[in-house]
């Protein structure tokens, strides 16, 4: 007979694993990818593919040749980063190479420089995205028009359209698409962000699987809704209405997938509510008074930086008090 094993209790484990969590997040992102492909065509798929492959590749290279540790690409976290990074860029042909640089920054600087999954203070996909936004402002804000699965000019840039937020910055609120169109995603934008419906489907799946809890998305979207509502009531001319606010830009994707990233968000429920509140508030402030039309990435990154403080402040209620 083989040797008996000895260890401290407990001797059984739930079937929970990092790998399973990450692959479930990947599953939850698939609806958004499908909708993006329907609206922006093969370009969206190609950008996603390039982004995912380069994220996984960079992680493997860094672990193998720089860190010299066993590779962890199988846990699916690099795929999550790749998907989220791709979802945050426009589906244009020029993104095919730019997104590779984004992947390098996301994985190399956003994650592995801190020691790999679990040790990064900032959401790696957002680090990559913000890097690209600052380094390639033109390409990153050249939005393709919504077309079919096969755009007329494959592999080249389609006619540029504009995001609703861009439209507002330039033309005011009259030229906006309908709320319903925005809900299903028929508008310009970073291709993963456009469809609130697809994102919500994924988010509900994650909620059912208990991978995310409702606290961050609800606090985030709720704060954005209420705050923009107050602004709209104060001055309906200058500010956009709250429904448009939450349906446009990256709020949905950010609130459901990026702010809820386990590694960079607070652990306690109260902490998560504070975190979501901060994200929502900062997003609206940046949108209305900042230089950029969109502020979700900056808002989440800023709140990521205060996560350790929130963790320190919001302790769970001790049983024996």
């Amino acid at each position: 007979m083989k040797l008996l094993n000895i260890s401290g209790s407990p001797h059984v484990h739930s079937d929970e694993s990092t790998k399973r969590i990450m692959w479930r997040v990947n599953m939850a992102l698939i609806p958004a990818l499908i909708v993006a492909t329907l609206y922006f065509g093969v370009n969206a798929l190609l950008v996603t593919l390039v982004s995912v492959v380069s994220c996984v590749l960079f992680q493997w290279l860094i672990e193998k040749f720089i860190m010299k540790v066993p590779t962890t690409i199988g846990d699916g976290s690099a795929v999550v980063t790749g998907l989220l990074l791709a979802f945050n860029v426009p589906a244009t042909a020029s993104m095919l190479w730019i997104v590779v640089i984004g992947a390098l920054v996301a994985i190399g600087i956003g994650k592995m420089a801190f020691g790999g999954l679990g040790k990064n203070p900032f959401n790696p996909a957002l680090v990559g995205r913000v890097f690209l936004l600052i380094s390639f402002p033109v390409q990153m804000t050249t939005w393709p028009k919504v077309g079919g699965i096969f755009p007329t000019r494959l592999f080249t840039d389609a006619d540029s359209g504009a995001t609703p937020l861009g439209i507002i910055k330039e033309h005011g609120t009259e030229a906006l698409p309908q709320a319903w169109e925005m809900f299903v995603g028929h508008m310009g934008g970073s291709f993963g962000e456009v469809s609130a419906l697809a994102i919500l489907i994924g988010a509900i799946y994650l909620l059912c699987r208990k991978i995310i809890s409702w606290h961050i998305p609800v606090a985030f979207i709720g704060t954005a809704f209420v705050f923009s509502g107050i602004l709209y009531l104060c001055n309906g001319e200058q500010f956009i209405d709250p429904v448009t606010t939450i349906l446009t830009g990256g709020i949905m994707l950010g609130a459901c997938f990026m702010a809820t990233d386990m590694v960079t968000s607070p652990m306690s429920k109260v902490g998560q509510l504070i975190f979501g509140f901060g994200c929502g508030l900062l997003t609206i402030i940046i949108r209305n008074w900042g230089a950029y039309p969109e502020g979700v990435s900056f808002a989440i990154l800023l709140m990521n930086s205060v996560t350790p403080l929130i963790n320190r402040w919001c302790k769970p209620a001790r049983f024996a008090k």
């Binding site: 001797h11 962890t72 020691g115 999954l117 679990g118 652990m267 769970p316 001790r318 049983f319």
Partner: peptide, 30 residues
Amino acid sequence: VIDESEAVRAKESNCIRCGKCMQACPMGLE
């Protein structure tokens, strides 16, 4: 008597700060 398949602990990896331990703790610890 616990079978090998359950008894051997899986390989440890980095903490992903999911907070599941904290939510599972009946004493409200971290």
